[in-house]
């Protein structure tokens, strides 16, 4: 039985990466060549990151990453390509994510309200909370 392979993110073909010439191409050239980045560096858009991942999923097991590629294109102040870097599977690391999350509020329905709350609400066709008034 064939496991299915999924391609996630923006998988840039390697030949196109070789075409990029630092010192010549500007940001708009890069967008023409390999599209806009998956994510830019956090506080400035100096580095563009093209992140992609190939996963193989069998049955209910967690999708197993069989290939990961990060293409980094860095620009200088004038917006011209200063460097292109390619990182593969070797840079992948298992990270234990912190489970704590920032608390938020918001009205969450109690069990009974959920169970019976909407029996009448939907069937009577009354809109649940439509913004009223002529706006």
């Amino acid at each position: 039985c064939s496991q299915n392979v999924d391609v996630r993110g923006n998988e840039v073909e390697l030949e196109t990466v070789e075409v990029i010439r630092p010192g010549v191409h500007t940001r708009s050239d890069i967008v023409q060549l390999i599209g806009s980045p998956t994510v830019m560096s956090t506080f400035n858009d100096k580095n563009w990151y093209y992140i992609s991942r190939r996963t193989q999923t069998t049955a209910f097991f967690k999708p197993e990453t069989i290939e990961q590629q990060v293409v980094t294109v860095s620009f200088d102040e004038q917006g011209v390509v200063s460097d292109v870097a390619l990182a593969g599977m070797e840079s992948k690391q298992e990270v234990a994510h912190v489970s704590r999350t920032t608390p938020t509020s918001g009205h969450s329905l109690t069990l009974l309200e959920q169970l019976f709350g909407n029996l009448g609400r939907f069937n009577s066709g009354k809109p649940v909370y439509q913004a009223p008034g002529g706006r």
């Binding site: 560096s41 956090t42 580095n47 992140i51 990182a87 840079s91 992948k92 690391q93 994510h97 920032t102």
Partner: peptide, 23 residues
Amino acid sequence: PEALLRLTECYLAIGIKNEAQTA
């Protein structure tokens, strides 16, 4: 604050060290 920590975690997970350090 939590977003910055998550950026550190995720960048580390895919191996972009300088971004992790910046965050």
